[in-house]
């Protein structure tokens, strides 16, 4: 019996209640810290995740638009989950609306309103837009903007005959009324109208002008695309001159958004 009361086996002061209290208070302190500091971070994460998901969704929609316009697919639909802000179709009739104007010295003057599919994030103040086949993004109330996915304009140099052809696609987003969606929905798009113009010329200077909507200005994104990607020259702010080409092809598509 004497051995039970030796120093080694002395269990005085070990209380299950105090142990429980210690662990329980650690848990409570942990929960408190998470809700104090962790929750705002989690909300921020959620907003940026929503935004990233929408960036992906917009590229999926751009792929649908590509299929409709370049691959002669008559109809496409995609299911999306829109979180953190509304997805809206601004059709070509909306005012003010951005526009592209193509002019040359021989009297060609084409003004085109592309319309937009636009997502506006409420939490992160980010705007993601599909305009004329390009996916672009900008922050609210700031002048900068950038292109997430480019449209397919190109200048072809034919090594067989040495001819240079510029191909410009004008893709308009149209709808019968103003459409908007939050939550899960299906974007149904249909090819409405195509129009194909081929202009041959000798040394005519073609100017493409981007006239932005002042409240939704993507001129920086378009400028970077024209000047850096296509290597056109900027003659005046918002005006870009094509390099000398032998032929200009303008393909115009009108896509009808049936529902969101």
């Amino acid at each position: 019996m004497e051995g039970d009361y030796s120093i080694v086996k002395n269990e005085c002061g070990v209380s299950e209640a105090i142990g429980f209290l210690l662990i329980f208070s650690l848990v409570v302190v942990g929960i408190g810290l998470v809700s104090l500091y962790g929750y705002p971070v989690l909300m921020q994460q959620q907003a940026s995740a929503d935004q990233r998901i929408m960036e992906k969704n917009m590229i999926v929609l751009q792929n649908d638009i590509k299929s409709l316009s370049y691959k002669n697919v008559p109809y496409k639909e995609t299911s999306l989950k829109v979180e953190g802000g509304p997805l809206t179709v601004y059709n070509t009739m909306m005012t003010p609306t951005p526009s592209f104007r193509i002019t040359d010295s021989s009297g060609i003057d084409i003004t085109f309103h592309p319309g937009q599919i636009q997502y506006e994030s409420a939490a992160s103040q980010q705007v993601i837009t599909i305009e004329n086949g390009a996916v672009m993004s900008r922050r609210n109330l700031e002048t900068g903007s950038f292109m997430l996915a480019e449209p397919r304009w190109f200048i072809d140099t034919d090594p067989v005959y040495g001819k240079i052809t510029a191909v410009i696609y004008l893709i308009g987003m149209n709808s019968t009324e103003l459409l908007s969606r939050r939550g899960v929905g299906t974007v149904k798009m249909q090819m409405a109208e195509t129009n194909f113009t081929e202009i041959s010329f000798d040394n005519n200077q073609v100017i493409v002008q981007y006239i932005p909507d002042p409240n939704n200005n993507f001129s920086v994104a378009w400028r970077n695309y024209f000047v850096n990607t296509l290597k056109w020259t900027e003659t005046a702010p918002g005006s870009y001159q094509l390099p000398t080409t032998d032929k200009l092809v303008i393909k115009r598509y009108d896509i009808m958004v049936k529902s969101l």
């Binding site: 370049y70 397919r152 190109f154 072809d156 034919d158 005959y161 092809v249």
Partner: peptide
């Protein structure tokens, strides 16, 4: 949506082939 051009030329005499084809195709991608 593709720029296509081609040329067929008759090969000069004495070569082991008759014709030369040059084909160009570009769809922007």
């Amino acid at each position: 949506n593709a720029v296509v051009s081609f040329r067929i030329t008759q090969a000069p005499q004495g070569l082991p082939f008759n014709k030369t084809f040059e084909i160009h195709y570009n769809n922007g991608v």
